[in-house]
């Protein structure tokens, strides 16, 4: 708001430019607040809350960066973990490995499940109701319960010991509802005319799904995949008792020597011991960077989707 415009309204001058007619000037705002202290109080509270939330994020990021970046030494990125160098490179590779394997397992199942729910299931189908309820339940279960289940089933019952595959299957169960839900939304957003057009040209149901519907829904599905990657990278409670705390790369999928600590588990061990605070800071920096990249990609995809809609 320019000073001139403010002066105009305050002195009741009639030469107010047209586009200012519905605008509240700062002066008018202040007079409103003087009349209604409650409004002023609420406004201050809103501002404080916003500053707190954003400030908290900025503080966490700066604090971690300031304390962590100086400790990102070359030693931290050596190929082999030893108790002396406390290298996090194996943990980073484990994280990537775990993410890739989990996605390979969960994404096709999730997408196919969503295809069934949206394209094949008939209205009022009892089974669909059960699937929806279980999917919702699955998405609410805390990760430690997943972890405990994985421990009981894979490590104890199937005698896999601490193994990367146990972690992968546990995580796949965890991200399944997320992928189903986002894919469902993406499929529902595909206009019906696409389906009708495809059927009209003589394509079968399966062909329509794979050649017309799924390609159209790719951006939506991708955003679900990215969200899942974020969850996998940030997960620790579900992994401690399934894939365990093996500091080096796993030598096998199951059995002895197949334990693989991801970066979060690595960081948990470091911060719980309290002996390697500097290295914990360094791994926090890497985790933050990963989170940042994942969010950036997710934002880009979201922007792409909304641009297409608009």
């Amino acid at each position: 708001m320019t000073d001139a415009a403010e002066k105009n309204t305050m002195s009741g001058n009639t030469t107010v430019p047209e586009n200012y007619i519905n605008r509240v000037t700062i002066g008018a705002r202040l007079r409103q607040y003087a009349r209604s202290p409650l409004s002023l109080l609420l406004m201050i509270l809103v501002m404080l809350a916003a500053i707190f939330a954003v400030g908290m994020l900025v503080f966490i990021i700066i604090y971690i960066l300031v304390n962590g970046v100086p400790h990102l030494s070359a030693e931290q990125f050596s190929w082999k973990y030893t108790t002396e160098n406390v290298s996090m490179l194996p943990a980073i590779i484990n994280t990537l490995l775990m993410t890739a394997m989990t996605l390979i397992l969960a994404v096709p199942i999730g997408i196919f499940a969503a295809v069934y729910l949206v394209e094949y299931a008939k209205r009022g189908n009892k089974l669909v109701k059960v699937i929806r309820v279980t999917t919702e339940t699955l998405s609410g279960i805390p990760s430690i319960v997943f972890g405990l289940f994985g421990f009981l089933m894979f490590n104890i019952s199937l005698k896999w010991q601490f193994s990367i595959l146990a972690g992968v299957i546990t995580l796949a169960m965890m991200i399944l509802p997320l992928i189903i839900r986002t894919t469902e939304e993406a499929l529902l957003a595909v206009p019906d005319s696409y389906r009708e057009g495809s059927f009209g040209l003589g394509a079968g149901k399966m062909r329509t799904v794979f050649r017309v519907i799924l390609p159209t829904a790719v951006p939506g599905i991708m955003s679900g995949v990215i969200l899942s990657i974020g969850r996998i990278v940030g997960e620790s409670a579900a992994l401690i008792f399934t894939s365990g705390s093996g500091h080096n790369l796993p030598g096998a999928l199951i059995g002895s020597g197949s334990s693989a600590a991801t970066l979060t588990v690595h960081m948990y061990i470091l911060s719980n011991e309290g002996l390697h605070t500097d290295q914990a800071f360094a791994s926090a920096v890497v985790l933050l960077a990963l989170t940042f990249i994942i969010n950036l990609i997710s934002d880009l995809i979201e922007r792409h989707i909304s641009k297409k809609k608009g």
């Binding site: 966490i60 940030g234 997960e235 948990y268 911060s271 926090a284 933050l288």
Partner: peptide, 16 residues
């Protein structure tokens, strides 16, 4: 910023 706050792993929060 809010999305990022949601994405920070809980172990980083705990360490903080």
């Amino acid at each position: 910023a809010v999305n990022l706050l949601a994405g920070i792993p809980s172990i980083v929060y705990g360490f903080f």
